[in-house]
Design a binder for these strands. Structure first.
Lengths: 233, 233
DNA sequence: GTCTATAACTGGATAGAC
DNA sequence: GTCTATCCAGTTATAGAC
């Protein structure tokens, strides 16, 4: 790293890493923002609240990230890469291990499994992140475009693999099935507490083992039935 | 209905009907609020914006509905009754017409169909309303509780009927399947435009006929497979 | 890098005229 | 019922001290 910054815009170091002191404040801010945005949405959170939660001053947030919207984008982008990598790897591993004998359910497991794994990590941040993605996913205003920017490649990968297993499947069916699947998956990962009240405590939305035990079969069966019936023209 | 209101709190007529002049401003305000809240969420909309959209003054909104939150609740409650009524009726009709020969897919159609029907009405308001419900449905902070207050009875009805058709089914499986189903359904009804970009125009999220042609089969197959496999203890 | 202070503005809500 | 005018709490964002 060159110590002389010469003269390329020496104004504000937006997006710059902090020097390297003990507790990384930049990450702390992102964690706090992630937790709050995921529960109340972009407009439901103030920069002040994020600052309070992170134990820093509001000015510092603007110093690191610029405007509030840029902070939000940074939160969204932070884990997207890791997530995509994990999913692509899981799908590649499944293909390698089972090529010639791949099943729809197997592919679905490779596609959804990593999300459940990450959500069950000690890192509570992943739960918040998935809540955030779910929230963005059904934000009509700008959600579609955002999802598109970050997550399309993995989905195309899924569709491609399904097409390999079921060559007769109509592509449009696969896209619609993906949409059904992602709706179920995102709601489950949001852990909204709805099922707890609905079932009067019989099911708990935090019980991701229960989700895992059912969602692969549920989605796979749905996909199979849709692609196996000739759709009416 | 008694015409004499005697003396019960003659302060502000919150929640009162307007006298009976030409264009019903109260409804216009609700329509505007519905459209805006459904796209930007509660915090993403200002009372001023609602007023502008409805062509009225902000003061009038407070006159009719009180605080902003009460306006939101009024929007949410307005169509809930009609919707629940339509769904209960569709399910009852299905039961009557097919008792003895009910299928999972038939029940699911009775459960989901009315939403698609209403969304395809000329009344654009229903589309906004479903977007709003979807948004509330995965709002971790207070969404679960709100859904619970308004929509639990229809869901219990669905679960009961499914239990009749498949007496061996575990109740917990049915609740989880309902959650998967509602995630798919709400996302589809939100028409976020995501699938349009994802599929590069091959599918359009506004194409509810395409949704209808697939979602019944998808959900029914999912439910059947989940309840037919013995879950591991 | 981090904090203090504050500028500049937007929001919800109401009082009171008509 | 409806609008005008306004209050004031709370917000983003920045300038500048340390």
């Amino acid at each position: 790293m060159d110590s002389r910054v010469s003269e390329d815009k020496a104004v504000t170091p937006r997006g710059r890493r902090p020097k390297g002191h003990g507790p990384d404040l930049r990450e702390a801010i992102l964690d706090a923002a992630e937790a709050l945005f995921s529960r109340h949405g972009f407009y439901g959170v103030t920069v002040r609240q994020v600052a309070a939660e992170a134990g820093v001053d509001t000015a510092l947030i603007h110093y690191y990230f610029g405007a509030k919207r840029e902070l939000f984008d940074s939160v969204f982008a932070r884990r997207a890469g890791i997530l995509n990598e994990a999913r692509l790897q899981a799908m590649a591993a499944y293909e390698q291990a089972h090529h010639g004998a791949m099943t729809v359910e197997g592919v679905i497991e490779a596609f959804i499994g990593p999300l459940l794994d990450l959500s069950m990590t000690n890192d509570e941040g992943w739960k918040n992140y998935f809540r955030l993605v779910a929230l963005v996913n059904n934000t009509p205003a700008w959600g579609g475009e955002t999802m598109h920017r970050f997550f399309d490649p993995v989905v195309h990968r899924l569709v491609d693999v399904l097409k390999v297993i079921r060559p007769d499947a109509e592509i449009r069916d696969l896209y619609w099935c993906y949409q059904f699947l992602t709706g179920s998956m995102m709601l489950a990962l949001s852990e909204t507490g709805r099922i707890d009240q609905l079932s009067d405590g019989l099911c708990r939305s935090t019980d991701l083992d229960a989700v895992r035990a059912r969602i692969y079969a549920y989605c796979a069966a749905g996909i199979e039935r849709v692609i196996e019936r000739k759709p009416q023209p």
